[in-house]
Amino acid sequence: MKDKKELKGVEKAAILLVTLGAERAAQIYKHLKEDEIEKVSIQITQLKAVSPDVKLEVLREVYNDILAREYVEQGGLDFAKSALANAMGEERAKRILERVQRSLEGNPFEFLDKADPEQLIMLLENEHPQVISLILANLSPEQASAVLGGLPDQVRYEVIRRIASMESITPDVLELLRTSLQTRISTMMGGTAKVGGPELVAEILNRVDSNVEKSVLEKLEKEDPELAEQVKNLMFVFDDFMLLDDRDLQKVIRSVKDNRDLVLALKGATEELKEKFFKNMSQRMALMLKEDMEVMGRVPLREVEAAQQRIIQVAKELDEAGEIVLQRRGAEEEVFI
C-alpha cells in the first residue's frame, strides 16, 4: 500500500469509508453525486491491505479539515488560521487551510471534467501553452492526462513546464477564462448534448427507495402518462423476473446471500412468479422457503419491497458483469445466436 502522501483524494475517500464501516459509509453515500459514488466504489474494490498507520493518518486529515471548516465558518480565515496554528503549528495549519480554501471555493473548470477529451483537445489545440496549462491544472488528473496525451509534443512540453512553475492567479482571470470556455464548448457541441431523458430517469429511480420511486411515478402518470410508461418500460421491477431465462434466474437465486430476502420478496409476489422461483431451485430449498413464508405471518410492506430491491440489485450486478441478461417489459427482446 502507498504511503499516505502518495495517495490520491479518491483513494483516501475509499480508505475512510472502509475504516468507518458499511453502515456509516451508506449514510455518506447519500450525500455524494452518482459519479462520485462510482469512482469511490471502484476504488474500494481495488483496495489492498491498508496499514493501521495509513488509516489513522487519513482519519486525522479528515478530522483536521472538518475542524478547519468549522473555524472558518465561526470566525473567518484569520480566526481559523490563528486557532489552527495554536493547535498544530503554523506550517501544518497553512497546508490544511489551503486545502479547505480550495474545497470551499470550488473548481471553476469542473464542467470540463465531464467533457469528451477529444473535444477539449480540439478546443485547446490553438491556445497559448500558458492558457492550456492553467486549464489542465484545474482539471482532474485523469482528464488532464487524457488531454495532455492528445497535444503535439512541443506544446505538451511547454504545458508541463508551465504547470510545474505555476503560482497563484486572480479569481477574475479564472472567471473570464471559464465563461469564454463554456460559451465555446457549448457552440462546439451545437447545444445538443444529451443530459437527461427517460433512460436517465429510469436509472435514477431504479436506485432510490421504493417509496420515492412510487411517489415519482404516480405524479408522472398524472401529468404525463406517455412519459411515465416510457420510464416504467426502461426500469427493471420485481415482476420482470417472469421474463428472465430459467438459467439466469438460477444464477440470481444462487447469488442471494440471505434466504430471508427470498422469503420476504416472494411474500409480495404473484403466484405465477412464486412458482417460477420455486421451480428454479432445489425441491428442498423450495420447501424450506414455503414453510418459512407460512411461519413468518404478516410483515410490513416496506420490508417486502426492500427485500425485492436487494434481489433486483443482485440481478443488476450480474447483468453488468455479463453473467445474465435482464429483459425489461416494453424493451426489444435481445436475440442470441
Rank of each mutant, 00 (worst) to 15 (best):
K5D: 07
E6V: 05
A13H: 00
A14T: 00
A14W: 04
L17K: 00
G21N: 01
G21R: 10
E23G: 03
E36I: 02
I37V: 11
K39R: 12
S41D: 00
Q43G: 01
K48R: 10
A49E: 14
V50K: 06
D53Y: 10
V54E: 02
K55P: 01
E57W: 10
Y63K: 13
I66D: 09
E70D: 08
Y71H: 07
Y71V: 01
E73D: 11
G75Y: 06
G75C: 05
G75W: 11
F79D: 02
S82V: 06
A83I: 05
A85L: 09
G89Y: 13
G89E: 12
E90D: 09
R92K: 13
K94Y: 15
K94Q: 15
E98C: 04
V100K: 05
E105L: 13
E110H: 09
A115Q: 11
A115R: 08
P117V: 00
P117A: 02
P117I: 03
I132M: 12
L134R: 02
L134N: 00
I135T: 00
A137C: 08
L139K: 04
Q143K: 15
Q143H: 10
S145Y: 15
A146S: 13
G150I: 09
G150S: 09
L151C: 05
L151A: 01
Q154T: 06
E158I: 02
V159R: 10
R161H: 13
A164D: 06
S165V: 10
E167Y: 13
S168R: 14
S168P: 05
I169E: 04
I169K: 09
T170P: 10
T170M: 12
T183K: 11
R184M: 10
R184S: 07
M188F: 05
M188H: 01
G197V: 11
A202P: 02
A202R: 00
I204P: 07
V208M: 04
D209S: 13
S210K: 14
V212M: 14
E213W: 07
V216T: 13
E218D: 06
E223N: 03
E226K: 08
L227T: 13
E229K: 09
Q230I: 06
N233D: 08
L234R: 08
L234V: 04
D245F: 14
D248C: 07
Q250W: 14
R254S: 08
K257T: 05
D258I: 06
D258M: 06
R260N: 11
D261Y: 08
A265C: 03
A265K: 02
T270K: 15
E272Y: 10
E272G: 05
K274D: 01
K274W: 03
F278S: 03
M281S: 02
S282C: 02
S282A: 02
M285P: 03
K290R: 08
E291H: 04
V299D: 09
L301A: 04
E303V: 03
V304I: 12
E305K: 15
A307M: 07
A315V: 00
E320A: 03
I324E: 07
V325W: 13
A331H: 14
E334P: 07
V335W: 13
V335L: 13
